[in-house]
Write a protein that binds this DNA or RNA. Structure first.
Lengths: 163, 163
DNA sequence: TCGATATAATAACAGGCGTTATAATATCTC
DNA sequence: GAGATATTATAACGCCTGTTATTATATCGA
């Protein structure tokens, strides 16, 4: 029997909750023949129709190849279509197909349930603090990834950083 | 050019920062021929030598099969060994091999750098609030996953939930 | 003690993701 | 206008992870 002496580490915590929430969301998505990742793509695309794969990748904070693969599957399921860009023949513009609408509608409700579930017992100001902190972390890591391998430059932030 | 009107969603944020941190950590781990997941396993095992794969899985919040596969790779790299349990012939006890020590020692320093990097511009009390909130989220989701498909039961919590 | 049941580990399958390399197309510069 | 350079998308490869099913071994109960 294992026991857990050491205080929970922030780095481990972030990975754990993301994976656990992912498993939970995947189970829900699977009831509509989708995955969590595909679900996310549909949501982002519904908010911004006609995005290129590259722009959608930036919006999802993944590599373009990842979007390409997700679109492959969603396209074969008839939920998304690739429309050639008229100005630039390298680019695909992405559009939701009608079949995506009911799927999205039902999942939207399930999504709210997930938000409620993970937030049980945590007050709203704490959630707000966490969100602001996570926004900052996302900025920090994005910077670090962009800046190369070296230790990231301190961010001189004129706006309120966290809360 | 995409623009990002809507306020950052907590669910998206959690997934994004975990993935981004994962990419960052993976790049570091790769300099020692490892992956982030293998690195985590080594850390947990160093803290609790002799764990079974099942217990280690619980500690890492992943399925046992995932630990089994990670151990396959770490074993082939000579960093971990499987020792048969004398009482129960189904279980393997896991031990770090000497080769793991220097790897772990170097990575420990890099790990502290990551923690510093992600926390840039976020004050300590905010970090503490976030940690407590994440501990609670982990509890909530773990409950929900265990409790089956239905919406998780509200958690009546006698202890302070988040900060 | 023996048959039913539970448990640890693993195999097969499927989906997600980044990295590196490549093809096609644009754009920039001389 | 042509060659150099940049950009969009994709293929190949490898690793991470869960789900379902299976095997080996323990344990429990009649």
């Amino acid at each position: 029997m294992a026991n857990y002496p050491q205080e929970e580490d922030v780095l481990f915590l972030i990975g754990d909750i993301a994976r656990l929430i992912g498993v939970y969301a995947d189970r829900i998505a699977r009831t509509r023949g989708m995955s969590k990742a595909q679900w996310v793509l549909l949501i982002k695309l519904a908010q911004n129709p006609g995005l290129s794969q590259k722009d959608l990748a930036q919006m999802m904070a993944v590599e373009p190849i990842t979007v390409g693969r997700l679109v492959d599957r969603l396209e074969s399921h008839g939920l998304v279509e690739r429309v050639p860009d008229e100005q630039d023949r390298r680019v695909w513009r992405l559009q939701l197909l009608p079949a995506a609408e009911p799927v999205l509608a039902e999942l939207a409700e399930r999504r709210r349930e997930i938000v409620t579930m993970i937030g049980q017992g945590i007050d709203d100001t704490t959630i707000a603090t966490m969100r602001a902190g996570m926004v900052r972390i996302k900025t920090n890591v994005s910077h670090a990834l962009k800046g190369g391998d070296s230790f990231p430059q301190p961010i001189t932030d004129s706006t309120k950083a966290a809360v």
